[in-house]
């Protein structure tokens, strides 16, 4: 059924994933490409938001919504807040002079991409169908996540929460001399 591209059957799932992945990749490029800091931040917001939808398509609603709450809703709002407080000037002010850093950065980027790709892509050679086995229906449900967080991984979970608490107290101490 359906059209075929490069020998892969075009299912609705694949189309949804393709659209989301393309858009989020474009946004990721936009984050580094835009000279305007606010637009970069906005691209990152859209990227996080679309990633959440990728999680939704993988039956991991909990994960996706946490992504929106934490990254899109809290962290990026703070980013924007800081950018607006700094009130960076016109986009021209941000243009750097072309020196060895740009080509070197590009080269290193391509190298990293090649390294990751050489490990990942061979697995997909000859694959023509999306595999839909694996994750259970209730794999990403709040119940399943909660149960594993508070039974199997309770020590790391509590350790992380203490770490965060220490971080909060420390930042308040640094920011505020008189408490």
């Amino acid at each position: 059924m359906g059209a075929q591209i490069l020998g892969v059957t075009l299912t609705p799932n694949l189309m949804v994933f393709g659209g989301l992945a393309t858009l989020s990749a474009l946004c990721a490029v936009g984050v580094v490409a835009f000279p305007n800091a606010v637009r970069s931040a906005l691209c990152l917001v859209v990227n996080f938001f679309l990633l959440a939808f990728v999680y939704f398509t993988l039956n991991a609603e909990m994960m996706g919504i946490t992504q929106i709450v934490v990254y899109t809703g809290a962290i990026m709002v703070l980013f924007l807040f800081v950018i607006m407080l700094l009130n960076l000037g016109a986009p021209q002010a941000l243009k750097e002079k072309l020196d060895f850093k740009t080509p070197l950065g590009l080269l290193l980027g391509v190298a990293l991409f090649g390294l990751v790709g050489s490990q990942l892509l061979p697995t997909f050679v000859g694959v023509t169908q999306v595999q839909t086995t694996g994750a259970l229906e209730a794999f990403g449900s709040p119940q399943a996540v909660g149960r594993s967080l508070f039974s199997d991984y309770v020590v790391p979970f509590e350790a992380v929460s203490i770490l965060l608490l220490v971080g909060i107290v420390g930042s308040i101490l640094l920011a505020k001399r008189k408490i």
Partner: peptide, 21 residues
Amino acid sequence: VNIGVLYILAISSLGVYGIVL
């Protein structure tokens, strides 16, 4: 969905963007 209330919190946290932008 099984994340009903979290969804509301997530979407209401997006409300700030329109105003900030």
